[in-house]
């Protein structure tokens, strides 16, 4: 069934299992769902199963057990239908050995985009991705980042329901990365469902509506960035900067707080970093200690847990 309603799940993976050699499981009960128009970040360390999942969802390889559907089409039995409604930006470079312009034209032609629309889309994407100046250049002569830009932009030549992006921003400069991410966000708001893998957690935090952390072939944590931080990112960070000798300050703070109020105190030149679950509540005691030592503070900051903290905690469990 191809349920295309607004609440429909456009990506469904249920207990998907896959082994390449019959012994080690690349995917071991992978389960997650993505709604229409949602950007879902699949995070995991190298070899966790991200690329295998994408290869299965894009029908490139089969799987041993479980079920899955993309845009309402069954992965096992309706692969050719799925391939008509998806876009894929692979992690590895992929391009036709010709000019940048031809790469766009060929993509449009292969996907049967009408000629007029093909030209309009090409110009729009070239403007948006800053490719106009290099349109006549051969792909082979472009830098890695430029090739990646073409690879991502070219995929938007055709209409699709679901877009799979396997580390699409590797090699891109920060400005272009932001541009591309905001374009992906815009398309998602228009209804495009996006599955996004990245090693850059800040990026995932910025763009993804929900995040699934994959480890050893299964989702071990899932939710919005905030939900994950609340659930797994237990340590907050308090940073103090002063011009004084911080060794003696740290010793006094340790004495004042007691070991149950902090996890770790780190001293680096004139800065103290204190990690603790509720370290913000100890701020008064810390300031009192410093005042008692007649030390003036240059800067105080309290940081919330980051996705990095969550990731480290979840995959190292």
């Amino acid at each position: 069934m191809n349920d295309t309603g607004d609440d429909a799940y456009y990506i469904v993976m249920e207990d998907v299992r896959k082994s390449y050699d019959g012994k080690k499981m690349a995917l071991d009960g992978l389960t997650f769902k993505v709604r229409k128009g949602e950007i879902y970040g699949l995070l995991g360390k190298n070899g966790a199963g991200k690329s295998t999942s994408i290869k299965i969802m894009t029908t490139l390889i089969g799987f041993d057990g479980g079920e899955g559907s993309i845009s309402g089409y069954d992965i096992k039995t309706e692969a050719s239908r799925i391939r008509r409604v998806i876009g894929v930006v692979q992690q590895e470079e992929s391009f036709d050995f010709t000019s940048v312009e031809n790469n766009f034209k060929l993509s449009g032609m292969l996907w049967e985009v009408p000629k007029k629309a093909r030209k309009e889309r090409m110009e729009e994407l070239m403007d948006l991705f800053g490719l106009q100046e290099m349109r006549k250049k051969r792909m082979y002569d472009l830098s890695g980042g430029q090739k990646k830009r073409v690879q991502v932009a070219r995929e938007f030549m055709h209409d699709m329901n679901v877009l799979f992006l396997d580390e699409p921003t590797v090699g891109l400069d920060p400005i272009m990365r932001r541009k591309i991410l905001s374009y992906i966000r815009k398309r998602a708001r228009e209804g495009l469902t996006v599955l996004f893998t990245t090693q850059n957690l800040e990026e995932a935090d910025m763009i993804c509506d929900r995040i699934g952390i994959i480890n050893d072939g299964r989702i071990v944590a899932e939710g919005t960035s905030e939900e994950l931080k609340t659930k797994f990112g237990t340590l907050r960070t308090l940073k103090l900067t002063a011009t004084e000798n911080m060794e003696s300050v740290a010793a006094e703070i340790r004495k004042k707080l007691g070991e149950d109020q902090y996890e770790e105190i780190d001293i680096s030149e004139n800065r103290i970093t204190i990690l603790g679950k509720k370290i913000d509540r100890s701020l008064g005691d810390i300031l009192e200690t410093l005042a008692g030592m007649d030390i003036s503070i240059d800067n105080v900051s309290i940081d919330n847990p980051t996705l990095d903290d969550v990731f480290m905690k979840v995959v190292q469990k």
Binding site: L60, R83, S94, F95, D96, F97, W111, E112
Partner: peptide, 18 residues
Amino acid sequence: WSDRRWGMFEQIMVGPFR
């Protein structure tokens, strides 16, 4: 060979082709 080398074989295989 060229399509495999430059990633286009896989790219075409995830497109609307058999």
